[in-house]
Design a protein around this nucleic acid. Structure first.
Lengths: 341, 341
DNA sequence: ATTCTTTATTAAATCGATTTAGCTAAATTA
DNA sequence: TAATTTAGCTAAATCGATTTAATAAAGAAT
């Protein structure tokens, strides 16, 4: 069973494919195709189960109705849930999503963007890894519509949708301070990335505002692709000296958070009695964990919604110049048992 | 900056685009294009940063180097991790992945498959929802390469990659029995789906083999799109009558598992003292939960690897008839604290 | 009777690649 | 010298749609 093409319908009816195309695209009236012929075209199309070839259509019109989504890792629940929201929102407007996991490596993201840029997608939603600045600049130069999410580059003017990481982190740290924690550590990752830098800044600012000293020994910055042993070492360092033991940890991602909590458990450190815990990203695990984990929840639905909306606007009319769309959303602080002594 | 096309290169060098195409596709020698001309073509292509338009290529060759992935929900950690493995494996062979979440609704899956089938993908990896039999049959008839994962339809001969659900479930139940549980409940979902049916069968078989009675009151089957209140109601029913209280629950998905454990916590039922727990799918949450949760881990890497491999074979040479590839993988039973009284 | 409109339709160009079939000039062989 | 081979390259068809410009036939206006 070969697929039905426009030509098949045209030949069987003895009309031109122009006519068939016009009718099936709802331009019958506009082009004054007779009712009779229109009816016959529509009926035969249905009978032969005709579906226009999207590739051919894409080549001619330059539109693919597909969005390229470049994220760190679709298996990471943050990006998984976000991906789902983007997919849902895109589908509402007739768009499909092609996703690529960059593993936070610029070389991967660059290759993926270049690949998809060759006619495969109409625009991008990108969570750009460190070092991908050049590729983003190139996207801009080539006038490909795109939105950055989760982070952006200060030196590049572009659309973006992010959350107020500094404030979120500040809230979490402030909460720990108010609950009597004196030596609060911060375990973070991906050094140099704006998002993480801001989370660290928020942590520091909260300490400073509470007239507490910032002890660089309490800040552990792990590489993106860290193993659980790296987290374990960090925690051991933070808890080795009895008189200077930390009494709280702020984890800046759920990935370090989950691993950190596993380590705390295996070191027999009680949460929150020995060490209070606050973590970014409100994942399922934090809800069923005992104790439940206090979390900084990101508004995934809103991030998805806004990023698709901005991208659609950007793609809508390529000619006219648009103002930049830079959206900062608020996180939600969910207090649970891990942080209340 | 417009994109460079084959024609641009051809015109600038004063040669035909045939020549340019041949050279850039490595057929220079075969067609005896002179070394000098070849060199000039390659150099100009690099200089103009030429990248072939994939849409045009796809139209001509009928190949898109894209795989369509239809799953229930990319935000579900099982499918998220699986998706990642599929993406990774596909990328190794030069394929990209387009994903669609069906929400276990046949109408969605059908629409998504039909959409992508119009030239957008070369083949499918599908986790088919109940009721999508007709669409799968249609795929077969149209000779579109595909593999089913996680489940399949017994009445349709097709390639598939699944796990031995009956055995996995049997193991989990047997383990609970050996640990002294007398009244073991099973909370499951998606009635009528092969995967879930087999998990239920394994549970029943383990009970029967241990000469224990199968009490239908201990089996709760929730719809796919259940809320936490549904799980709560099920658990309340299972624990309401004091003298017939259950002492263990087998959850057949991590989605019900996570919610079930939340309910147990909020009902102040101790795990495992009051109720022992075993759940399918070894998610992060089960590792950091206190107590840690005994889980039936699915071999995600292997499922991903096999499904891509089978699909690639299927796509390789459409003409020759291939034997069916039906692969059943083993799960891994991870014993933790939630099931050991 | 001639020109202008309107109706109903189509031929052909186009998107950007791949691929088949063929062509010219030089070199080699008979 | 004529016939054949080889080297080096190209014209044109093709994939399946969309879209521009054109056209034939019929009716209306002058």
């Amino acid at each position: 069973m070969k697929k039905t093409s426009l030509n098949d319908i045209a030949q069987q009816l003895g009309v031109s494919k122009t006519l068939v195309s016009l009718v099936l695209n709802g331009k019958g009236k506009e082009y004054r195709i007779s009712q009779d012929v229109q009816k016959r075209v529509v009926m035969l199309a249905k009978e032969l189960n005709y579906k226009p070839n999207q590739i051919a259509k894409g080549l001619r019109t330059g539109k693919t109705n597909t969005i390229g989504l470049i994220i760190a890792d679709i298996a990471n629940p943050f990006f998984g849930k976000l991906g789902r929201e983007i997919e849902r929102e895109a589908a509402k407007h007739g768009y499909r999503v092609m996703f690529c996991s960059s593993d936070e490596k610029a070389v991967n993201a660059t290759q993926q963007i270049e690949m998809l840029q060759q006619g495969q997608v109409d625009g991008f939603i990108i969570s750009p890894p460190n070092g991908s600045e050049e590729q983003i600049k190139q996207l801009k130069k080539s006038k490909t519509p795109f939105v950055l999410i989760d982070r952006y580059f200060t030196e590049i003017e572009s659309n973006w949708v992010v959350v107020d990481n500094l404030k979120a982190s500040y809230q979490g740290t402030e909460h720990l301070i108010k609950n009597g924690c004196k030596r609060i550590a911060c375990i973070t990752t991906i050094p140099g990335m704006l998002t993480m830098d801001n989370r660290l800044k928020g942590y520091k600012k909260a300490l400073t505002d509470a007239s507490m000293e910032i002890d660089e020994n309490l800040i552990k910055i792990l590489p993106f692709s860290h193993e659980i042993t790296d987290v374990m070492n960090a925690i051991k360092e933070l808890t080795s000296v009895e008189e200077s033991k930390v009494d709280a940890i702020l984890f800046t991602t759920s990935k370090v958070g989950v691993r950190g909590i596993q380590c705390l458990h295996s070191l027999n450190l009680k949460i929150p009695e020995d060490i209070a815990v606050v973590s970014f990203d409100d994942i399922d695990a934090y809800k069923i964990s005992r104790p439940t984990i206090t979390a900084i929840a990101q508004p995934l639905v809103e991030i998805g919604w806004h990023s698709v909306k901005v991208l659609l606007e950007e793609m809508a009319d390529k000619r006219k110049k648009k103002e930049l769309r830079q959206i900062t959303l608020e996180t939600k602080f969910v207090i649970r048992n891990s942080s209340v002594k």
